[in-house]
Amino acid sequence: MQELFLSFRLAVIVTAILLVLATPLAYWIAFSKWRAKFLVEAFVALPLVLPPTVLGFYLLIAMGPRGPIGKLWLALFGHTLAFTFAGLVIASVLYSLPFCVQPLVASFEKIDPKLLAASHILGADAERTFFRIILPLSRPGIITAAVLTFAHTLGEFGVVLMVGGNLPGITRTVSIAIYDRVQSIEYAAANQLALTLLAISFLLLVLVYGLNRRVGLLWNVK
């Protein structure tokens, strides 16, 4: 159960960090009039198509004692990032970025531009418009983004293995643990963990669809 707890801790931290980072990024992608913004969109979507081992490999190099992130970390904290929980967090943030950004962009873009124009004309600046109009109207997108990020982080394998290795209590997440047990032919133990993960994932999705449905009903009563 230690692995399960570790995975949850990782997923919660990564989701929190990503919501804070992805919201301004998604806002920029949705509303910027910069012509070359498709480059940024392509970069954000990269983890969707990249094999996790490729991403993990480059992250491992970057976090190592001679990589740029690793050197910086070494100077600041006296140890490198590879095979640590912090390294795992950074890798997961990058890997789950599109799962958080894309639902947010979609829900920002769905807002009727007339509403935003109306808000500005009523005297609200960009900040007030964001917090009073855009954010509340994007609640379904935010819930989707949070749950997808959480679930995706919970289940990731390739990147974690490359960057984190398999250190019990530090980097051995639940998916690594399942793999481990299968390797040592402990099928019953593997099944126990796998089934728990399956149940949690299903519950999370039920929660997303249920919440989004309720939000929708609240606004379109008639």
Binding site: D112, K114, W219, N220
Partner: peptide, 11 residues
Amino acid sequence: YLFQSPALFPH
């Protein structure tokens, strides 16, 4: 400024 649609904030 009033548009063709009322553009009321739905929430």
